[in-house]
Design a protein around this nucleic acid. Structure first.
Length: 374
RNA sequence: GGUGGGAUGCCCGAGUGGCUAAAGGGGACGGGCUGUAAACCCGUUGGCUAGCGCCUACGUUGGUUCGAAUCCAACUCCCACCA
């Protein structure tokens, strides 16, 4: 993996760069659509290519349970399996420690958990998380971490962060021992909403040394201000010449906030999930396609949007498809929302390269949040 | 023509004397969703009122009863089977 920062915005920490991975090059800041089970829900690999997605996520926990690592290995890796030739990043399953907490037991050794599919018992250690992700074959793999719940008192957050740190050391060791090809390993900063912990975690990770660094444990229920603070504290410590990945973010405004704070990579289920649930992103703000006022609106969702959906279909049609429970609604809505996020990323990129990111962000938010900026 | 069954809120449908402005669906209306157990989840859905509350409602009309969607009678309409 190679990463080089090509432009820095003079008004903030935003930067734009190029990340070279085994399966291709990614221009940053980048939005990575989430394809948990080796599919970005409702889209095919050719859809993603057409939309211009440069890298997508997959999830080690989910793929380990189904179809299983052996199947992926036999397929020739996740890229061949899903016929996607561009980069892939896998999350380790650390987030499932958080989201499926009632099925887990976490110890210093690792995570004992029951499958949400059939209740069968399994164990993830930092070492097995590396082995699994090596089998899946993504371009970037993540350390096993403990995504700390919110709110977390200082002592709890400290203990959780130190566990993540200990696991990061073990992941690094295993990754170096078994290193295959040029899979890159990212460490993950935890520490909840505590500045001292964020700083300590980031410093320690940098000391261990990783090709890239992620900021995790964010967007788990804290407010936007607390999220921004956690990101800022973490990013401030991370080395300039390594990519920074903000995990699970975000909403369009949070995405721009992250970029402003110097983050390069983002992933979020919001555009895909919201699309399936009827909320669509437009330059003029969120549109709930279920609302009665769209039923006879024969104009496009967003007249400025270059996506294949806005080019061809009306709000009235999208409204009808959604109400009727048609499967096409999910697909068209997802195409649009993913296109929206990719567009936003590429416009942010251009703005940074022109040295006017803050201006761009303010203009975007004014339109997105409405005249009042609420 | 005969026998039996049935008519409940926008729709379907439960409810056989008081705890019923009436279960449960659906639809409609609105909201939520941030490293995906999510094509999911939550709220509202007779009228008036800030609220206490009042009014109007279970095919129609009348009756029994302290009290009826629930019991009785007649009527109207629907369905099934038999001729």
């Amino acid at each position: 993996m190679r990463f080089c920062v090509e432009a820095r915005d003079p008004g903030c920490a935003a930067r734009s760069g190029r990340l070279t991975l085994p399966h291709g090059t990614v221009e940053t800041p980048v939005f990575m659509p989430v394809g948990t089970q080796a599919t970005v829900k409702a889209l095919s690999s050719e859809d993603l290519e057409l939309l211009g997605a440069e890298i997508i996520l997959a999830n080690a926990y989910h793929l380990y349970l189904r179809p299983g690592v052996e199947t992926l290995r036999a397929a020739g890796g996740v890229h061949r399996f899903m016929q996607w030739d561009r980069p892939v990043l896998t999350d380790s399953g650390g987030f499932q420690v958080f989201s499926l907490a009632e099925l887990n037991k976490v110890t210093d050794e690792g995570v004992a958990f029951q499958s949400h599919l059939d209740g069968s018992r399994h164990f993830f250690s930092p070492e097995s998380a590396m082995d699994i992700q090596r089998g899946i074959g993504a371009d970037i793999i993540m350390c096993l971490d403990e995504c700390t719940e919110y709110p977390a008192p200082f002592d709890r957050a400290a203990a959780s962060m130190r566990r993540t740190l200990a696991w990061a050391r073990r992941c690094k060791t295993r990754w170096e021992e078994t290193r295959s090809g040029s899979q890159a390993l990212f460490g993950i900063v935890q520490g909840s909403t505590h500045e001292a912990l964020r700083r300590e975690c980031a410093e320690s990770l940098v000391e261990i040394g990783f090709p890239g660094y992620a900021i995790g444990g964010v967007s788990v229920g804290e407010g936007k201000a607390e999220m921004a603070a956690a990101v800022a504290w973490s990013a401030a410590v991370l080395p300039e010449d390594r990519p920074r990945y903000l995990m699970g973010v975000g909403a369009p405004d949070d995405f721009l906030t992250g970029i402003e704070l110097g983050v390069d990579m983002f992933d979020c289920v919001m555009p895909t999930r919201n699309a399936r649930n009827g909320t669509l992103f437009t330059r003029a703000g969120r549109v709930n396609i279920k609302n009665a006022r769209h039923a006879r609106d024969f104009g496009p969702l967003d007249p400025e949007c270059p996506c294949p959906v806005c080019a061809r279909y009306s709000r009235a049609y999208l409204s009808h498809l959604f109400r009727a429970g048609e499967i096409l609604a999910l697909r068209l809505n997802t195409l649009h929302n993913i296109c929206f996020m990719l567009q936003l990323a590429s416009r942010a990129c251009a703005a940074i390269r022109q040295g006017r990111f803050r201006e761009f962000k303010d203009a975007f938010l004014q339109s997105y949040r409405g005249e009042d900026g609420v």
